[in-house]
Design a protein around this nucleic acid. Structure first.
Lengths: 334, 334
DNA sequence: CAATGTGAAATTCTTCACAGCG
DNA sequence: CGCTGTGAAGAATTTCACATTG
């Protein structure tokens, strides 16, 4: 960490305009451990490092002002907060910031979006149910029906749905199609999102995958794999992984599906994020560790099994017993 | 619904001891629409039917007292509540009951287990993070580190972890291994669970799958498929789907993974539930509709994409902007 | 000193209950 | 009549703040 590093301490406000030591309370109080030792300490504890520090080190420059990159990624990153201040200066991270970070680990709960925590989860649920009803040809549902399937009270469903604007006719219910559309809209599932698929891994049946992508308006614009290279896939030919970055840039893809261990390499994914990927569905068991601001969804068998079994939870018997005791279950037929 | 059906109306308490019309307030008030017309009305509205009514109809008997089944499934089912009373009698379903139903749709939020809603979700998160730390050789973590990655405040992590008993040393933190063990225990991931796998569907790499199952103490005791029949899979040979029910009974399997459309047939899964399956991981896009009391986890690409994209949510830019404006992101490096 | 554990306060989420409408 | 939308009450979850401990 030679002199160069320490030079960053006093760096002037740079093009990206994101840092300025003199404005930092911790720095002024004289308690700032400094970039080098502070981050060393953070890393020892397995904590996140200061993103600017990381960037500056990786580029081997003194500070942001020496950076000649076309566009500063940090500038639009939610992680742009001094980890030192947070850790050693007792500064509190904002809730939004916290969620944002959590999203990149694919581990936090709830969405980073706008619909407040729980609510968005339920909206997804309603959407699934509505699709079911639609398929069955049902045109109108009541809050009671949805509530039953979701495991909540009808009033809550009404509240959720009321926030989407005046769907719902008194005495009748909600029109399935309209409600589904409104939810999709609120969940921002209507926006067109170019999507790349990384790693074919022996996948032969693409109809399901394509359908799934279409369901959320993600259009597949590139499939990449080194082993199956060249084969034609729908109207796309499989390209080598090394082309992925260029293609993401060209097609302005914002969503990536990672389906093979080779594609889950950190460097590759980081470059993809640099050129615009904002959401990653990770189908591999490998844990991704990406810059904040990206949304990662972990979906390997292990994670799912944990969910399943933990929901199965304690002896259901005991629970049911208690339930029955309290409310009685006699007289179920007449 | 001939006379036989109406006979059920007055059926005496039977072996399974679950119903008794005379104790029903709706019935006594004279407002009970009766099994036949009431359930007809329910079904018209796409609502759930009375489970006893369904059962009695399927078996074509007058009532429970005529049933000669070895063991009454209804007796241990949480769905054992008169839908008619709930729907037409203004009776309220208990929260536990509601959750139970929701679990079978693979759509509700939160677990049916004991750790209260949100908390269990987070525990799963901690578990994932702890595994990461363990792999990296870190032996102790603080609530702050976990909090950061989870997107919550440290105090909440402490609350969660404190409930697991006195892990955690003041001034030091939590031992990674001990904490992970405690969480696994609370989530009931330690119990041995025989598991069957239905539908091979071209899957060639079983190492990941086996690892995933082992991670939650699920031991694979049977693999079933009609097309790949006979091939050897680890130490198990693939058997025809028709053998599944018998094998589940023999091995007392409680968990099933459904991996092909053929295996997702309703009748098959219902019989499996009858002989003891309590949790189903559905890897197919087909929606399962099973009796209450079973926990279903839906894990197809479509569901995952919906989650991913909805979490990506509204324009992250706008949100980040707001965040930055409120708390400032200057002085990230010094 | 740097952490945990925990009352009490604050906040957020959910339910009740009922007016109002088709 | 049946169902929606919503103010107000009620629960629950989360955060603060601080005593406490290795």
């Amino acid at each position: 960490m030679g002199q160069k590093r320490e030079g960053a301490r006093r760096a002037a406000r740079s093009r990206c305009g994101v840092y300025e030591c003199s404005a930092c309370a911790l720095y002024r109080s004289g308690k700032c451990p400094g970039c080098a030792s502070g981050n060393l300490r953070l890393s020892r504890q397995g904590d996140l490092l200061c993103p600017v520090y990381q960037c500056v080190r990786a580029l081997d420059i003194a500070g942001c002002h020496e950076c000649r990159k076309e566009r500063c990624l940090l500038g639009r990153r939610a992680s742009l907060r001094c980890q030192l201040r947070v850790r050693f200066g007792g500064e509190r991270a904002s809730p939004v910031f916290l969620r944002r970070i959590a999203a990149t680990r694919g581990v936090g709960v709830g969405p980073a979006g706008q619909a407040s925590g729980q609510s968005a989860d339920r909206l997804r649920g309603y959407l699934g149910l509505l699709a079911e009803y639609e398929q069955r040809g049902v045109e109108v549902v009541s809050s009671h029906q949805l509530a039953r399937s979701m495991g909540v009270r009808a009033s809550l469903v009404r509240r959720d749905l009321a926030e989407l604007g005046g769907l719902g006719t008194p005495g009748k219910g909600y029109e399935v199609a309209a409600a589904a559309a409104a939810i999709r809209d609120r969940l921002d599932l209507t926006r067109e999102r170019p999507t790349v698929w990384l790693g074919v891994g022996g996948r032969t049946d693409w109809t399901h995958a394509m359908e799934a992508l279409r369901a959320v308006n993600c259009s597949l614009v590139g499939v990449f794999d080194d082993t199956d290279r060249g084969r034609i896939m729908g109207n796309l030919s499989i390209q080598p992984l090394s082309r992925a970055v260029a293609e993401v840039r060209r097609t302005a893809a914002t969503v990536a599906v990672v389906a093979s261990e080779r594609a889950a390499r950190r460097e590759l994914l980081e470059s993809l994020v640099e050129v615009g990927v904002r959401a990653i569905l990770n189908l591999t068991p490998r844990r991704l560790d990406l810059p904040a601001g990206v949304v990662v969804e972990q979906c390997d068998l292990r994670a799912q099994m944990v969910r399943l079994v933990s929901r199965l939870g304690g002896d259901g018997a005991g629970q049911a017993q208690r339930d029955r005791g309290k409310h009685g279950a006699r007289s179920a037929a007449r």
